[in-house]
Design a binder for these strands. Structure first.
Lengths: 243, 243
DNA sequence: CGATTTTCATATGTCTTACATTTAGTGTTT
DNA sequence: AAACACTAAATGTAAGACATATGAAAATCG
């Protein structure tokens, strides 16, 4: 079923790959129990620690979970959107921070994606999502809010917008793009006037969504994108000039 | 710098988390060498196998790489888009297959995202990407092409479209959405007439991109989405009726 | 006889020790 | 001076042992 030609590279990586392929191909079904570590070690003709390293690799991708005890063992995970999103977010964040992706590029991608689900969000928006958006707008207007909290609320606002599309695949893909921007946004200091402008644009978006007006939503998002881009440009220009 | 309160759960998971946080926060820079396994074991007051399991977890996410030999050790990886995409794709694929996501939902998400980068692709399309798209269209017209090869070419066509936007963040995010659809598409059998219609729509997209007409591109994508949806519906309906 | 407690078997989590292998650097020999 | 061998340091792998969690069977008590 799954063998292991011990020729080229790490045994643990090979074993992990073999099991992963079995899961992807469907040979191992969700919630099925893998053989015990000892049995796997015997089957692949390696030691138990080697098998354990392979299992940890899979656990890191949340492909399997392990349980201790008598009926314990390694089980194939049902990979849920909720479980996959944190990984997606950290990966996206690291990609941005490690590859010198410009603020401009990341911002462009983010708003392009958000505009993609604008028509769906406008058509399907629920009272729940609208309420969340309004609540976040209200929070953003609170005095004494730190820049970080302002950014966090901004992210929550946009995620409500995305989730309003009612498409889990879209929500999953966009969570990475939206959340990964937060560290970049945190580098910006928002003046009171900046915040007022952003809040006004947010209100415009919420209004367009409430009115189920897809075109107006897209236009409002474009306006917000331009506002964000010019804001970031001035901040980075000022920072560059100071040195 | 990074400690480990040994209270709740697996030590290896805790250690992996601590190192991961150090990488994300920037305490560990790209290409920096981690302490040796023995030193880490000493620092966290655990055994070497436990440290190794933690390192394997991080290696599975390609956050680190390991080198054997005298100057070997674990090094912080520069997480590249190319390295991250395969993981993104397998995760997306598993999410679709394990969560009973309907063809309709996945298809809707995919085309919504593609329409998002249509304006950018139209504005920035390079001769290279256009040539790839034309080549894939030509391949799709070859007689004797298997359904699987037809689908693979379809994916290549759409990836060229996405890459034409010239935004690596967009390409990364959409690779998952586009590629993860392939197993679902492979369940469809394409008649000659189906293929002819799809190829015609592909040509319409390529023409619109070549003419740098963003609106026409979006419309062509919408037409292709509808064609795909109705095609899938008829296939699934026929399959349901046969039982 | 039934419910509760105890015991036990099993599997993972961890530690210890040891050896194998790879690789860079160094020292010796020709 | 160059080629070779040797060494040291690090990861890769192995084997065995103990700790711990946990469900189920067995034993005990009401």
């Amino acid at each position: 079923m799954k063998i292991d030609p011990s020729k080229p590279a790490d045994l643990s990586a090979q074993i992990a790959g073999a099991i992963r392929d079995a899961i992807i191909s469907g040979s191992l079904i969700v919630d099925e129990r893998l053989p015990s570590e000892a049995e796997l070690a015997d089957h692949f003709d390696v030691s138990r620690p080697t098998v354990r390293e392979a299992l940890k690799r899979l656990a890191a991708q949340s492909l399997i979970r392990t349980q201790r005890g008598a009926t314990g063992g390694a089980f194939v995970n049902r990979l849920s959107f909720e479980a996959a999103q944190p990984q997606q977010i950290t990966t996206s964040t690291l990609l941005l921070s490690m590859n010198a992706v410009s603020f401009e590029t990341a911002c462009e991608a983010r708003y392009a994606l958000e505009r993609a689900c604008a028509p769906l969000s406008a058509a399907r928006r629920s009272p729940d999502h609208l309420a969340t958006m309004r609540a976040e707008i209200h929070r953003q207007g609170q005095p004494g809010l730190t820049d970080e909290a302002f950014c966090a609320s901004d992210v929550a606002f946009h995620r409500a917008l995305v989730d309003g599309a009612g498409n889990p695949v879209l929500s999953y893909q966009l969570a990475g793009a939206v959340e990964a921007m937060q560290p970049l946004m945190n580098m910006i200091t928002f003046t009171a006037r900046d915040r007022a402008r952003i809040i006004a644009l947010h209100e415009g978006i919420a209004d367009a969504i409430e009115a189920q007006d897809a075109i107006a939503t897209a236009e409002a998002l474009t306006a917000l994108e331009q506002e964000t881009q010019t804001l970031a440009q001035s901040v980075f220009a000022a920072r560059a000039a100071r040195r």
